[in-house]
């Protein structure tokens, strides 16, 4: 199948976007219901990145944040983070990084780095280092112990991201592995995960 930004937006891929945006939000909601200390709000973006490619995932990440920011505008500048995570996950998947458990772990770490590198400057420049989540307390402790603001925010962000992205990547690995070949064959990047 032809891939690339011009060919990736097939009807199937376009119809996947709303579903995956909803999965992002529902994932977050379930994590809240089960009172888990992580967000798990990028599962949809990762799934769509794996089966429909980086560019579709970028759009899915953008729409997730746009819709979240209807109710909380703080999400708006962080659209960049979701877009970058989608893009990075798509390219990692094309390199086969979601096919074996040890590769999934490396992919999770890379994704945590990507989102930290983009989220931390936004947090520092626009919000002075906090965004109201539980991470704010860690940042404050690090600052009080004499750390620079950048080091403090980068460390806080990475601590929060690493668990989240590792687990999300692993969950997506399990889910995509359970998709049928018949379904995967209809998607541009599905053949990476077909069984034979």
């Amino acid at each position: 199948m032809k891939t690339g930004i011009k060919n990736d937006f097939t009807l199937m891929a376009i119809l996947l976007i709303p579903v995956c945006v909803a999965i992002n939000m529902v994932g977050f909601q379930i994590a809240q219901l089960l009172r888990l200390p992580i967000f798990l709000d990028s599962i949809g973006t990762l799934v769509i990145a794996m089966v429909a490619g980086p560019w579709v995932a970028l759009v899915a990440g953008l729409i997730t944040n746009l819709i979240n920011s209807i109710f909380n505008p703080v999400y708006l500048p962080f659209s960049l983070v979701s877009m970058a995570v989608g893009l990075a996950a798509g390219f990692l998947s094309m390199k086969g990084m979601f096919k074996k458990v040890w590769k999934v772990i490396i992919a999770g770490i890379i994704l945590a780095f990507v989102s930290t590198i983009i989220a931390a400057p936004i947090t520092v420049i626009l919000f002075g280092g906090v965004t109201g989540s539980t991470g704010g307390a860690i940042t404050a402790v690090l600052l009080a112990s004499g750390q620079q603001i950048w080091t403090a925010v980068f460390s806080t962000q990475f601590i929060q991201e690493i668990g989240d992205k590792l687990l999300s990547a692993f969950i997506c690995f399990l889910i995509v592995r359970n998709m049928s070949d018949r379904y995967l064959s209809k998607l541009n990047y599905g053949q990476i995960y077909m069984k034979d």
Binding site: M12, L15, L16, V19, A22, I23, V26, G27, I30, A31, L34, R35, L36, P37, L40, I43, G44, V47, I171, L174, I175, N178, M179, Y183, K186
Partner: peptide, 26 residues
């Protein structure tokens, strides 16, 4: 927390697989 974390996958994976399958019909 471990018990609650283990409940995450059985909740989200049927949801994802069924909603992905419905995109074909759509």
């Amino acid at each position: 927390m471990m018990v609650r974390a283990k409940a995450f996958l059985p909740t989200i994976s049927p949801l994802i697989l069924s909603s992905l399958a419905s995109t074909e019909e759509r």
